[in-house]
Design a protein around this nucleic acid. Structure first.
Length: 429
RNA sequence: GGAGAGGUGCCGGAGUGGUCGAACGGGCUUGACUCGAAAUCAAGUGUACGGUUACCUGUACCGUGGGUUCGAAUCCCACCCUCUCCGCCA
């Protein structure tokens, strides 16, 4: 009758104080009173509506039987007629309450997993590990913009002319390196980590955006084509995860592991003035995304695996990085637990996010009605996870900066030689 | 984009106003037969939400959304999708 909600509404009914407490950890105040009020009126109206519907159905059946026997139906007709007005009103009221309840539930974020550190901002995130030593440069390091423009292979003047700010034109060997990175990542995940490659639509409908939680809350972050009622995907998570929307799959098919390379489109509406220089924050960027559908009991193991899969790309590229466990206050709306991977950018002298790996538990699955058939033969919500592995544009930036040479050329990581036709260094062309 | 056909349960496929949550066939599950299997026979086999939560029971759902009716899978309207032919095109 109504779309899947986000948190389990039963859990709210039965355990409201507990839910409120856990949401408070991530800085969300659950309006308990509003919920209770809404739910009690829902109960009252739903009961009365269904009672009247049952009565109407019984009378309608009776009329059919009487007519078949050629008997008089005027009494039953009159009786059912008396129900109509009240029933109409109730059905409208019920629909309205259900809409309100859904709107309410859609704005409630996921419950953080117990292992998530408490905190209210980025500053409270916890560093899990650091891998690789930042290189010590014997010359003044340059950022990727300086390097790329110096090599005449990154062209912001052209992209600004074509599209405006937060876009880029890549040329020649840097364009090829960008392509090489995506190929390399796909090859590793399919050949070594057991993911199935998918090619997916970059434009999706609003049901899909709702399924993964981009809508209704984050509409202002999306590019939208109103003529066709389609949205440009902000991540491959959207089309890939929605593959299982409204599906019930046999549990022995799990886990399902997919990888997709897509462009991602984001309006970056809330990011005015941030990272305006260079390729760090763009309206369009490429990403290789991992998505897993798993049995609920396996989702935290799967999260560790997915994280390792993403890390392995950085290790093979020999880029220094660290893994952060996001605190309750810094996690995304839909996540129960999130690790960020941050890569070292020498020109910024800082670690910057290059991947985000999350377990959504049943949060997305409930919205999408993505289920497995359990050993008792009953449908049960499955768990979804995803993570970037990696953001291609930011990986490119990391390589340009970490592999720069004093003469402005860029060495190429050894694992990419074969993707670059044997080229070992990017130079002026 | 134009013309036509069609969208029903896990699959195939009936159903054109009442007793249809849906015939029939297949599949699947369980039981019987069997040393076991096949074949055969019998029973069962949708989802969501709600009430009670042991059993049980109510409502809704036959592409989606509206409408007509006491009553709609069945009639009307709009939209979406699929197939065939034509046109166009990477």
């Amino acid at each position: 009758m109504e779309d899947g909600l986000m948190l389990d509404i039963q859990q709210l009914r039965n355990n409201l104080p507990e839910v409120q407490k856990r949401l408070a950890f991530r800085g969300y105040t659950l309006d308990v009173l509003a919920f209770e009020k809404l739910d009690s009126s829902r109960r009252r109206v739903q009961l009365e509506t269904e009672e009247l519907q049952a009565k109407r159905n019984a009378l309608a059946r009776q009329i059919g039987q009487l007519k078949a026997k050629g008997e008089d139906v005027s009494y039953s007709m009159a009786e059912v007629g008396g129900l109509a007005e009240r029933l109409d009103a109730l059905e409208i009221e019920l629909k309205d309450i259900q809409k309100q309840m859904q709107d309410f539930m859609l704005t409630v974020p996921n419950l953080p997993h117990e292992s998530v550190p408490a905190g209210c901002s980025e500053a409270d995130n916890i560093e899990i590990r650091r891998v690789g030593e930042p290189r010590i440069f014997e010359f003044a390091v340059q950022d990727h913009v300086f390097l790329g423009e110096g090599l005449s292979q990154i062209d912001f003047a052209s992209s600004a002319k074509l599209s405006g700010s937060r876009f880029v034109v890549l040329k020649s060997q840097i364009a090829k390196l960008h392509r090489a990175l995506a190929q390399f990542m796909l090859d590793i995940h399919t050949a070594e980590h057991g993911y199935t490659e998918l090619y997916v639509p970059y434009l999706v409908n609003s049901d899909s955006m709702r399924g993964t939680g981009q809508l209704p809350k984050f509409a202002e972050d999306l590019f939208f084509a109103p003529e066709d009622n389609l949205y440009l995907i902000p991540t491959a998570e959207v089309p890939v995860t929605n593959m299982l929307r409204d599906e019930i799959i046999p549990q022995d098919l799990l886990p399902l592991k997919y990888v997709a390379h897509t462009p991602c489109f984001r309006r970056e509406a809330g990011a005015a003035g941030r990272d305006t220089r260079g390729m760090i924050r763009q309206h369009q960027f490429d990403k290789v995304e991992l998505v897993q559908f798993v049995h609920p009991e396996q989702s935290y193991e799967a999260l560790e695996e997915l994280l390792k899969n993403a890390e392995s790309i950085l290790q093979r590229l020999e880029l220094p990085y660290r893994v952060m466990a996001l605190c309750t206050g810094d996690m995304g709306f839909s996540a129960a637990k999130t690790y960020d991977i941050e890569v070292w950018l020498p020109a910024q002298g800082a670690y910057r996010e290059i991947s985000s790996c999350s377990n959504f538990e049943s949060f997305q699955a409930r919205r999408m009605q993505a289920r497995l058939r359990n050993s008792r033969g009953k449908p049960e919500l499955l768990h979804t996870l995803n993570g970037s592995a990696l953001a291609v544009g930011r990986t490119l930036v990391a390589i340009l900066e970490n592999y720069q040479n004093e003469d402005g050329s860029i060495s190429i990581p050894a694992v990419l030689y074969r993707y670059m036709g044997g080229l070992k260094k990017i130079t002026q062309v």
